[in-house]
């Protein structure tokens, strides 16, 4: 288990990934800062979002809306909208899910995303994702994911009892998020609702670099979930978990000007420059504990000024008008 609150000693690789994707689309090769193990510049992303059976209209409607938010956000990191599929309601049968995963496994994609939202149950044999008709079981999920060839995988199981599959799904190259810590947390979960909220707004993008990472989304959703129970003075019946290394390198969505200027070469050039400054910023921040405070801020200020000036240029090119800050 990794702590997601570890200090960000390296810049977000998701950031690299997206910049590269812009450049790649324009057939521009780039020298990427060597110290990072970069995802394949030819990276492609695909994904499947499934919302389960609601049991009543309120839950069904919530699951549907959450699924829609998540898939729309994921599409912002992909090349084509059709690379990300949403299955809801009657369309989300066990067979349909397995078939869709089979189909996605045939696409040569660096990144694969799977998001399940709904009710989960557990019995003496298996965890089950409640779908119309037959449920999807742990074995189904393990087998289907085994066929996915993508080197980088993100699996978010936003259901009750989802903690039951955390260990079995964890493996190198895969990030797994579950809404509960174990199969024993059986009540309806709030976490996926907040996760969808994180992906639909800029609220979770705490460094405001307009790339929402898995770490940011998880942190946001987890905090909101725990606050929900605190506010209501209830014993928290869900404790989300995240497995996988460097979730701050996993991009979940582009926001703001990055979303708007998805394929603009001028923006890509400026973003490359921003990468270098961001690297310097992170390196300085990492040195903060060993530095004299006054000296640290003396060095920080010109760096932040340079980032600010560059951001103005980027905004000027993208024509981005800030409405959210």
């Amino acid at each position: 288990m990794i702590g997601i609150f570890q200090s960000q000693k390296t810049r977000s690789a998701g950031w690299h990934l997206l910049v590269r994707r812009i450049r790649n689309g324009l057939q521009i090769s780039a020298l990427i800062v060597a110290c990072f193990v970069a995802p394949n510049v030819m990276a492609k992303s695909v994904g499947l979002v499934v919302t389960g059976i609601g049991g009543n209209e309120e839950y069904a409607d919530n699951f549907r809306k959450q699924g829609l938010s998540v898939v729309e956000a994921l599409r912002s990191v992909g090349d084509e909208d059709q690379d990300f599929v949403l299955l809801s309601d009657e369309a989300a049968s066990r067979n349909a899910v397995l078939e869709q995963m089979q189909a996605l496994s045939k696409i040569d994609a660096q990144w694969f995303y799977l998001v399940l939202i709904g009710h989960g149950t557990i019995d003496s044999e298996t965890w089950r994702f409640n779908l119309p008709g037959d449920d999807l079981t742990t074995d189904d999920l393990v087998a289907a994911l085994a066929d996915i060839s993508s080197q980088e995988q993100v699996v978010m199981i936003g259901t009750s009892a989802s903690g039951a599959v955390l260990d079995i799904l964890s493996q190198p190259g895969r990030h797994v998020v579950t809404a509960t810590k174990s199969g024993g947390e059986l009540n309806v979960v709030r976490f996926p609702g907040f996760f969808a909220e994180a992906m639909a707004t800029t609220a979770a993008d705490t460094d405001r670099n307009e790339i929402l990472t898995l770490a940011e989304a998880y942190r946001f959703s987890n905090e909101k979930t725990q606050n929900y129970y605190l506010d209501k003075k209830l014993l928290a019946s869900e404790h989300a978990r995240l497995e996988g290394e460097q979730p701050d390198r996993v991009a979940l969505a582009r926001l703001g000007s990055l979303k708007t200027a998805k394929d603009d070469p001028a923006v890509a050039q400026l973003l490359e420059e921003r990468l270098v400054l961001e690297d310097e910023f992170l390196a300085l921040k990492a040195r903060k504990p060993e530095m004299d405070t006054a000296l640290y801020y003396e060095e920080l200020e010109p760096l932040l000024l340079a980032i600010a000036r560059l951001q103005q240029k980027i905004d000027s090119v993208t024509g981005w008008v800030d409405t959210n800050e």
């Binding site: 460094d207 921040k285 801020y297 200020e301 000024l305 980032i307 600010a308």
Partner: peptide
Amino acid sequence: RQVLYALEHAPFYRSAQKLLL
């Protein structure tokens, strides 16, 4: 000082960037 603290947490925060500039 406060604006530097703000940007230290969120280096791309435009409103804070504007104030710093």
